[in-house]
Design a protein around this nucleic acid. Sequence first.
DNA 1: AATAGTTTTGGAAGCGCTATCACTTAGAGC
DNA 2: GCTCTAAGTGATAGCGCTTCCAAAACTATT
Lengths: 369, 369
Amino acid sequence: MSHCAVGWHIYEGSIDRLGAGLNKKVRATLSDVAERAGVSPVTVSRAIRHPEMVSPELRQRVGDAVTSLHYIPNQLASALASMRTNIVGVIVPSLTNGVFDDFLAAIQDVLEHAGIQMLVSNSRYSEAEEEKAVETMLGYHPEAIIVIGVDQAGRVRQLLTESGVPVVQAMDMTDDPIDLNVGFNHHAAGAAAVQFLYDLGHRRIGHLTVRTDPRSGRRLAGYLAAMGRLGLPTQGLVAASTRPTSVQRGAELLSEVLTQTDDITAVFCCNDDLALGALFECQRRGIKVPGDLAIIGFNDLDFSGATVPPLTTVTTERPLTGTRAAQAIVEIIRGGGRRATQVSEDIGFHIITRGSTAPPSRPAGKLPR
Amino acid sequence: MSHCAVGWHIYEGSIDRLGAGLNKKVRATLSDVAERAGVSPVTVSRAIRHPEMVSPELRQRVGDAVTSLHYIPNQLASALASMRTNIVGVIVPSLTNGVFDDFLAAIQDVLEHAGIQMLVSNSRYSEAEEEKAVETMLGYHPEAIIVIGVDQAGRVRQLLTESGVPVVQAMDMTDDPIDLNVGFNHHAAGAAAVQFLYDLGHRRIGHLTVRTDPRSGRRLAGYLAAMGRLGLPTQGLVAASTRPTSVQRGAELLSEVLTQTDDITAVFCCNDDLALGALFECQRRGIKVPGDLAIIGFNDLDFSGATVPPLTTVTTERPLTGTRAAQAIVEIIRGGGRRATQVSEDIGFHIITRGSTAPPSRPAGKLPR
DNA sequence: AATAGTTTTGGAAGCGCTATCACTTAGAGC
DNA sequence: GCTCTAAGTGATAGCGCTTCCAAAACTATT
């Protein structure tokens, strides 16, 4: 086996049935580096993984060989031999929902610093797909798994529990976590949004939502509970879509509510996409925000402070959630499995008051048509 | 080695220096399944990987053992032994920019069907980080790598070229691809946006952009080239930010242009985020869109059709781009490295005319302040 | 100068799986 | 009855790396 200067050689393999290995460039291995540096493979491994355990002269020599052969360690072989994959799996329900973007970005920031690779999977808001994703993920023996929500049940939960790896359920809270739990109480947040509007003087408060995930459901439940507690009727005030969230959907849902009632003075939107859509629908209909209709959103997405008027919303600290989830995992991994960390962390939420909410300016009258 | 019913046992390993392996649950291996089914490990491997090569009775027996032991094959070991990782690496410049979301989602849809896992990395619009990401990725021996843009140079390009794995440069076009190339011509798209506005009758056309990536730069170049070709001056009409794109930034950039000129009748925004921000800034200033100012965006994001007025924009077929990139890779992998596929595919772009653009309604006069 | 200690390096084994080839068995054909 | 084939199964040998322990090369002691 000879290697040319750039560190690979053309492998003239036979064309096998599977067709693989055809004219494939083969990369340098640890042994190649060892041969080049004139030492044994073990020593090269050590020089790379534990440079302090090796003499400076040798470190240099191995370093040179690594560079000249363009050697990149095979993580798969390393993982198999050491039983440490340095992989953390994250399963999100959607890749296109902005809510998970900054969460993922925050996780990656933390993991990257710790030299851990993030493996992302998409469950498309489906339990069956989540189960498949967990199973696939476990095949790569991740050091931990982060999932969204706390509603894993049946086989998904069993797989996660029995896998023996740290599991973080994120973005929601439960009394009965699989393992770690970082998030906030959606029911309370939904109720808080209602209370906020109530305190401003609103009594006829609508709610726009999507039925794609349990967390939206909890916000709805929080809305209903708060309205009930405050003695306010909710009939005809709620519009829910089974289709995925979007700005367009927000406009449609507001329209739907307005066909059933014309005296709402405020609307609580299950997320900022819907809120933006509702805001545009108001512009279209000549409904003044917040004068005719107050709007409160949820999540505080990138655009939410930049709309006209800027959107009052419930912030949910997604980057912080991701950071804390990842940090907890890194601590556990670093600690060799010891759990110094708190198991549950309620990140909380808070309402950012911006221009889209104000006390009701018209008496309980009708909206402009 | 004994296993309890649920398929793992407590490993009472010694507490070693690294702290790993402490009280760790160990998963069932191929040998465990083999023992349980009363066959050899090879046979179990075959029963799982090539069920048709094995008798139905045995298939059943192995299946039962797999189920009862909750066996999940170790992909790392499988990959190491078979030299096929079933991993495709994707490196995007940002996880939070909506532009890459649907691209990634489309890739995952295709790869998942082919039983391939997607490994995502984030280069944060930095060449240095991209280099690191490529290097890390190569450690996992992906079957292919997808990168954004065509501007990989120096060591990044060298690594990709020498890796010997199929590389797709996506979302931009080049005459000199590393390997495969799927995207569209940003220069042409930028010029087309200008031409579109010109054809509507606009002559004073501004441009809002960010200096975060070469593709925005090419759109800017296209804008400048088209303006030049049409004999239109551009002085004071361009605002560029070095900070990342956002809706807020769009408002700021429009304001910046408006401090330098007050007679533009149209503005071409480098992306829809900026366009939305510009739209809101117009609302804030009482500038009528499209009457006082026509706005054209870029990318056709989720919200773009739902704004008031709906945003005219240049669609860039990101899901299609992702799909084609992934399909090309799957074909190559399936074909065992044979390249039946076309090397370059120009997905193209087109302009969706919506309400935010119209012929200029006011004579070349000043905008309301 | 001999011994005990302290680095520094190497050998052997094996992580969990698959590719290859050799072997066993059952059925077909004469 | 026998050979001949096809189908099903197993033994062996790694993939590229790390862990553990032994050996070697030094350094510091007496």
